[in-house]
């Protein structure tokens, strides 16, 4: 940090730096402990009978006598509850996969059109993309709900996925990313006789790969944890996703808490794995939105 300082100064700075560093690190360790706490106590609770949870709330009492693998065993043996749970799990997987793949592809092509070409409606269309970000989704909740009934899309996967397919922030991110790319690449492709669509898939897409990774993780998180809209659309229990399925277990009697807490802990797992795999792309994904206020 300070090669040009004299040895004494260097030492003094190192000590000062050392103390500051110690306290700063300690501070982050403390906040992390606070942040981990609810998840950790949930994790401990998943080894206890659900009744215990209702009676005593979450507790971090490490009493191994009351703890067992019963809840997890129950979830992994064939019975009515576990069948339901894994069906929700599968539904969430399908919903997440389908909506991430479709959203990424569609938003990529939209952004490609809005970035790589000059055409009369370009700025207007881009303005509309921004405008959709300015209205909270909740306002459209009821009219969209009514519209879905009219379109006969209630209780279908399409009904859940379609309205969110052209996500403005995803389009915006691809746009920001592609702005920095040279348009000469397109002309080179054209000279070689490639058509516009071939260029967008075979020449541009590989270059934009990092943007796909960044958006994949954010879209996957959104889809996996999405609750409000699926709650409105899905009617039959066989189509429920994890979020709304787990929600149905929240009865005041607490007879389902065995499945609820263990199931919740398992539900964090897939998205946590995705997070660990794609972690380094997250910052890139988030930067795009914040580049320009």
């Amino acid at each position: 940090m300070s090669e040009k300082n004299s040895p004494e100064m260097k030492k003094g700075m190192r000590v000062k730096h050392g103390i500051g560093s110690f306290f700063a690190t300690l501070w982050f360790a403390l906040i992390s402990a606070v942040i981990i706490f609810p998840v950790f106590s949930g994790f401990l609770a998943s080894f206890r009978p659900g009744r215990e949870l209702i009676r005593r709330g979450l507790s971090i009492n490490l009493d191994f006598k009351t703890m067992s693998l019963y809840n997890y065993k129950y979830l992994f043996t064939p019975n009515a509850d576990s069948a339901k749970y894994w069906m929700w799990f599968k539904n969430s997987m399908v919903l997440t996969l389908v909506s991430v793949i479709l959203t990424l592809l569609i938003c990529y092509f939209i952004a490609y059109g809005l970035t790589m070409y000059e055409f009369p409606l370009k700025n207007f269309l881009f303005f509309l993309v921004i405008a959709t970000m300015m209205v909270p989704f909740e306002i459209l909740l009821l009219p969209l709900y009514k519209e879905m009934t009219q379109l006969k899309l209630m209780d279908t996967l399409a009904g859940v996925i379609l309205p969110g397919l052209c996500g403005a922030s995803t389009i915006f991110f691809f746009h920001q990313y592609m702005l920095s790319l040279p348009k000469e690449l397109l002309d080179a492709g054209r000279i070689d006789g490639a058509n516009e669509y071939y260029i967008s898939v075979r020449i541009m897409m590989p270059i934009v790969k990092p943007a796909f990774s960044a958006m994949a993780i954010l879209c996957a998180m959104g889809a996996w944890n999405n609750m409000l809209w699926p709650l409105m659309i899905f009617r039959s229990a066989s189509k429920f996703t994890l979020t709304i399925g787990l929600n149905t277990l929240l009865t005041p009697y607490g007879n389902n808490y065995d499945v609820l807490i263990a199931g919740s802990m398992l539900a964090i797992l897939p998205i946590f794995v995705v997070f660990l795999l794609f972690q380094r792309y997250i910052i890139d994904g988030m930067t795009a939105g914040a580049v320009k206020g």
């Binding site: 992390s32 942040i35 981990i36 609810p38 998180m221 709304i244 946590f272 997250i282």
Partner: peptide, 15 residues
């Protein structure tokens, strides 16, 4: 620090 953002609102709300 990022971990809580991965939990859905059902799970975090219940906890």
């Amino acid at each position: 620090l990022y971990l809580p953002a991965l939990t859905s609102v059902v799970i975090s709300g219940t906890l």
